[in-house]
Design a protein around this nucleic acid. Sequence first.
RNA 1: GCGCCAGUAGCUCAGUUGGAUAGAGCAACAGCCUUCUAAGCUGUGGGUCGGGGGUUCGAUUCCCUCCUGGCGCGCCA
Length: 557
Amino acid sequence: MSDGLDALRAELTRAAQSLGAPARTEPVLERPRDPSFGDWATNLAMVLAKPLGRKPRDLAQEIVASIDRQAAGIASAEIAGPGFINFRLDAARVAQGIAALVAAGEGYGRTTSGAGRPVVVEFVSANPTGPLHVGHGRQAALGDAISSLLEWTGWKVSREFYYNDSGVQIENLARSTLARVREMRGEPLEIPEGGYHGEYIKDIAEDFLKKHAALAEQLSTEQTLIVGDIFTMTGAGTAARELAVEMLRKEQDADLQAFGVKFDTYYLESSLYTDGRVDRTVAALIASGRTYEKDGALFLRTTDYGDDQDRVMRKSAAKGGTYTYFVPDVAYHVTKWERGFTRAINVQGSDHHSTVTRVRAGLQALGIGIPEGYPEYVLHQMVTVMMGGEEVKISKRAGSYVTVRDLIEWVGRDAVRYFFLMRKGDSQLSFDVDLARSQSEENPVYYIQMAHARLSGIFRVGGIDPASVDPAAADLSVLADEGAARFPEPRRRRGGSARAAPRGDLSPRHREQDPPLVPQGARAQRTRADHARPSGAGARCAARAAEWTVVARHHGA
RNA sequence: GCGCCAGUAGCUCAGUUGGAUAGAGCAACAGCCUUCUAAGCUGUGGGUCGGGGGUUCGAUUCCCUCCUGGCGCGCCA
């Protein structure tokens, strides 16, 4: 998409070339720190000073003299500071941008830079061992926003959820369920070590009693509870596991639906075992010569790829002889590559950051042409939930942690998503439930909602249908602040001082300086009225709403 | 002890590839408004950019070091 500055760039490039600049010189345009300097600025003269061996300000003089203002679409060019050149855009050019914005409607700002290339974004990827917690919520918000941004810029995005439905956690889930079943049959409750204490396990146990009465009967007379991993457990263990995983997957799906997140694909870790991919991956890694056996365990030389120690792939017989977590994860990422995803992004909590090196090392050791930085990781810091000035840690249903569902019930879906995107992932996030619920200007969500409500109110009172406004018939030159036309670039706030206000600011203070309103037909008149009458409040609302939207998207990136 | 992330106004946070006088919201203070939704409007004050070195014409930004907080350092996931 053109940002309307191509003509200016072309003029600058031409001017630079005529001064003898290196062939690949590309003029960089940026927003001046202080809007009173102008709309755009370039440091071109300073960049050229060194290669040309001349003073920046002299070069700036010649560049300015050389530019064809008409062709570049600018009203003025001024030299400032050590050699910056400040530009003011031509009002007609700005109006063109606004007309283009209105014409493009909701599609404004879309680009095709992704060129339809495939990318898989993996996020949430919870164990099916309980309801989603707040960390999953942050991932869901981030992952979904990243996916939307990629779609917006022309990528073919697949949102993927990886189910860790194998391994020790699932064994614990099955054992916890059976412990609850026995409790319901009158035996003392003994939740196994590493087991799950949440209320939801009781629901599963109840279902188990209904569907597997015979197994439950048998269970109560057994002296020893099931042993072995998910591949060797039988009878009640298998039944409990299958039932629990099924119920919890349904529950997680319901949570995600309530959160408004939809996945394109769900990938089951267990399938990597059943279809032989894990074994094939291990065989390929052994064949690569990057593995060795020690103390009865199989190691991968991850230190060859920057890890601080080699990692166990297959545990020794004494520890069960199973594969460690990252082995199926490597096999899983091979499938992403083989499914044609030349780009893969994983959204995870920073508590998993130690797996990054391991997975990448495994993929490199395979030597099948996967790039070194594959997959990309977006790691986010931890979330704490605050209510009444204190940290909340307990959820009624999950027991030991606050769930996504809790947050949605407390403050609503949109507010939850907004609060998760409000901070960049690198920062720890304190989720203030009271703030998210409050109807005050301190709550950004409420602020945005009010902006929309007030704008709608203005149209309603004015008896105007916004859709009926024809920008082609309107005098857009009254809208000389080009801020809105620069979407999706994050808008720089213009500060509170009068000096900083751009030309044609629609605040009351500036209105009297605006050009007189000359009717050009009823429609045009109404269009101006739409924008001019609300003046300070309306324009500011719109600008702020746009800012928040852009800021939210920006943070999502 | 090692690795990753963070530390910017009273509070919560932005700050793009190294660039001009480091910004916003809220809070504080002053003035104004009481006809369109008062989320009032306008203005003012407020900073050793965690500390100290270094590179550079120029550092919140890059490098080194120290301090503080979070997370991770398992044949757990």
